[in-house]
Design a protein around this nucleic acid. Structure first.
Lengths: 338, 338
DNA sequence: TTGAAAGCGCTACCAG
DNA sequence: CTGGTAGCGCTTTCAA
């Protein structure tokens, strides 16, 4: 029993409701020029026919879609996912969808993703990445698509910029560690295209320098993720520089780093302290729980949507907050003597 | 300096290359009827104009998109994300994109997501969920869109079914625990719309019954996630039934459960054993590392793409494998005496 | 091998 | 308030 279901279209609905396609379109788009009675009739026809508008046709005809794009560096990292989730909620609540693209921290993918989003005619674009590409801004500017950048770029015509004072967060962490007696600290970062020395690494170095120009430090980078964090810690320990505290670029990597220490029998925080960044849910489930810095991801998600749908071109700065848990503590007694 | 960039279209390219729009279309779609010289000319024109085809127009005109849809119960759970990631890789490698929809285990959202995917004219649809909806199969069948179901539904005309023998995995786990001496076991599951007693819970009970009809057990359900796992463990301990081993529906919840035990000072596995399911990366980073059952997510991702792009209507069954780590051990000495 | 033209389903503008 | 209709950018016959 083959049944050819030629998907319903405006015309079919129009015929059934005995109105023109224009009127059906008006009903679909909630234009309140339609007489209630007519609206009723059309609504019923749509129901009866189980009609669903073709989004592609709508986008093509209208020039704009009901889709918001989000480009992230690493959706596997809960930090990005959390932002996505709030954004999606807001979007759905307003009849939008959101499609995501992952760059994996590769600038090349960033650019191609932006292009793809533009050709998709997204209604707005959220760029939540650590990478940067010079051509990006230009293309985006030209496309006139409302956009919001997180952590990179600056506000402009249709462009909102959300920034978290990363530097400040690192300072809070380093200050906390310093006050606990730590003097030999290391930094674990992730590969990003910002050159050999990333902003974040620099922020760490700068925070150290605040206390004393003579504080030595070591840096290890790897891929963002649990394995990457573990690998970085391995590399770090292999340098022979024995830090009493390790500051990680984010919680995700910190969680991986903790595992390596556990394997080696180095007790945290008794023998070595570790900090994360972001305050993702996982940071509370690590062993030990991570001392970290809170980045308000839910808030960011809301701001992103709002900036895409409403007030554009703003510049927003958020301040991070220190969250002290059990992965940090006083420096080991054996070292105190020195 | 305002510049109106009216986005390039086929016609512009056609004009510049001095051919018809039909020919440009042929070049775009790689139809090898075009003379090499012509193709060259068109390609250059596209370059010069920085032309990018409008996917909506393509879908509208062609009736089919280059987008694959994936519907998952909980993208926050790495299990689903891992499948997504492989699927996306394969898709991109073949010029497809993939859009995801989250159901949060709600059957209602499942249905609306399927509808949305159908109206989007996705080229294929992967349904990786625990919920089920009767109307779903019907609509999908009628749409003639190639689909693949994971864990629910059965193969059909354009429908591929991938199943993992969940029951078998649970058996492996229970067997392992039983051989370690455990007799009082509990199960931590997550809410799903399969009624008060889910398939998975039943699988657990059945596995217990294999050994002895008299084995008592208790079940606690909560929301899938770290917090949910923790809450379930809390509920479990509150029942007063003191299990020596807890089988969790998946690794994600198990990770949450471990945290609660840690907080209470219950040492794993010395005082209580815990198992997970899926073998996600996080299971290796838990403390202690989770004994679990491996579900080949990468393989599943590949099969999904393959089933959507190529051979359809198959029925595939995968077998899970036991992975023994350190979250399970012999029953506590204090109990052994009994 | 290429061109001309008829749609795909919908929006938006102009009349009535 | 409603209808008619010209596109939106592309694919796909049908002819040449």
């Amino acid at each position: 029993m083959e049944c050819i279901i030629k998907s319903m279209n405006l015309q079919a609905v129009a015929r059934r409701a005995k109105v023109s396609t224009a009127t059906v379109s008006r009903v679909i788009n909630n234009l309140d020029v339609v007489r209630p009675a007519t609206r009723q009739r059309v609504a019923k026809a749509m129901q009866d026919l189980n009609y669903h508008p073709n989004p592609h046709a709508r986008t093509l005809a209208g020039g704009k879609s009901r889709t918001i794009g989000m480009i992230a560096s690493n959706m596997e990292n809960p930090f990005f996912f959390d932002i996505f989730q709030t954004l999606e909620e807001d979007a759905h609540a307003n009849g939008y969808e959101v499609v995501v693209a992952n760059t994996g921290y590769q600038p090349g993918k960033l650019l191609s993703s932006v292009r793809m989003m533009i050709s998709r005619r997204v209604a707005g674009l959220a760029v939540i990445v650590s990478e940067m590409d010079p051509a990006l801004m230009h293309e985006l500017q030209a496309s006139k698509i409302p956009a919001v950048f997180y952590d990179v770029g600056s506000a402009g015509r249709h462009i909102t910029s959300i920034k978290v004072n990363y530097q400040r967060g690192i300072e809070l962490l380093v200050e906390h560690l310093y006050s606990l007696g730590h003097r030999r600290m290391a930094f674990i970062g992730h590969d990003s295209a910002l050159g050999p020395t990333s902003d974040r690494e620099r922020a760490f170095k700068a925070a150290l320098a605040r206390h004393s120009k003579k504080l030595k430090s070591v840096v290890a980078n790897s891929i963002d993720g649990l394995d990457g964090g573990r690998q970085a810690m391995r590399d770090l320990l292999a340098t022979g520089f024995n830090p009493t505290a390790v500051v990680c670029v984010n919680d995700f990597m910190a969680a991986g780093a903790l595992r390596e220490l556990r394997d080696r029998g180095l007790r945290v925080p008794h023998e070595i302290s570790v900090t994360g960044y972001d305050n993702i849910k996982l940071s509370e489930y690590c062993f030990p729980e991570l001392t970290t810095v809170d980045i308000p991801r839910v808030k960011i998600g809301h701001i992103v949507f709002e900036s895409l749908a409403g007030a554009q071109g703003r510049e927003i700065v958020l301040d991070p907050e220190l969250v002290i848990r059990t992965s940090t503590g006083p420096i080991p007694a054996s070292i105190k003597i020195r």
